[in-house]
Design a binder for these strands. Structure first.
Lengths: 169, 169
DNA sequence: TATTGTTATACTCTATAACTATA
DNA sequence: TATAGTTATAGAGTATAACAATA
């Protein structure tokens, strides 16, 4: 569609580039996801935070995670996480609670509304993903997803040099 | 690897998200590509510009493209393209030439060194792509690439609202 | 009047440094 | 002394607005 009005095969040449293809897929999906989540008052990244909190809550009998741990797991800076939690707290979707065992840590919990919003938004997310993959037949879509998972396992997530407490300074 | 030191299945939960997978694949590949192209004195985006110029040059008997056209095709703003061409020109890889037929247009051409650099860097790019896909067997890698191409054709590239001369102001 | 290239400016996102309170 | 959270600040990347030259 966008390329149809362009003469020549430049789009073809670019479409041979893996980076170009991945970038376009990522940004196009992000656009749709952002639009789809807007009615729920959140963006994809915020939904990611809510999901991370929830994923922690259901594991090992309900482990609670601090901002630091969430930041590390989501691959964002801890200062970014502060702003992220600020926003979610302002919307009443999460709440900070001082950890009893280590009073430096802020445990982040879903509120009842936060959990409800997360669940609804997650349905919207799945719907967007399905629509996005609709141009592919079912098996191809499955192979694509599985291949991306394999690459993720092999190459790891985006490194966040100064966030996990390792080689700083 | 990165996830191995993390307790629980949060990475698993995130790895179920298409956006997360695409983002990680894109950023990881970008990191590697940036490192691999560094010896050639360029970054992935600059190589994209050189390739776009070259792709134009070999098509329809050697069509020459202006900054505006290159910007439109690469999906970047025209002001970004100015800075991009500035950098490439400073390195002696491209040169601007005023179009004879329309003196408003700056046709951008590869210098001899620019074409040589582009060709060498493109070999490095292919090598990086191959290595990046190495965790996948050959057929899976082919399906992945083809699927991304299909999605690209269906959803188009990243839209750049104010760049193609359409709905501005 | 509209378009290309250009410059200057603003905005967004993220990282860095410094501060506090806890350990 | 080191760590978690916070704040303020700076930096990259990108978009917006305005201007000159040309159509």
């Amino acid at each position: 569609m966008t390329g149809a009005q362009l003469p020549g095969d430049l789009d073809g040449a670019l479409a041979a580039r893996l980076g170009y293809l991945l970038k376009n897929a990522y940004f196009r999906l992000s656009e749709r996801m952002t639009a789809a989540l807007d009615p729920y008052g959140m963006n994809p990244r915020e939904l990611g935070v809510l999901s991370a909190i929830q994923a922690g809550g259901i594991e090992e009998g309900g482990q609670e995670w601090s901002q630091m741990e969430l930041a590390g797991r989501l691959g964002v800076d801890r200062t970014t996480m502060v702003a992220l939690i600020d926003g979610l707290e302002r919307k009443g979707l999460v709440e900070r609670r001082r950890s009893a065992r280590d009073r430096r840590r802020n445990v982040v919990l879903l509120t009842a509304e936060g959990e409800r919003c997360r669940r609804e938004a997650d349905v919207a997310r799945l719907q967007v993903e399905r629509e996005f993959l609709a141009p592919l037949d079912e098996e191809t879509a499955a192979v694509l997803t599985e291949a991306l998972r394999t690459l993720f396992a092999a190459h790891g997530r985006v490194s966040r040099p100064h966030c996990p407490p390792s080689s700083a300074t």
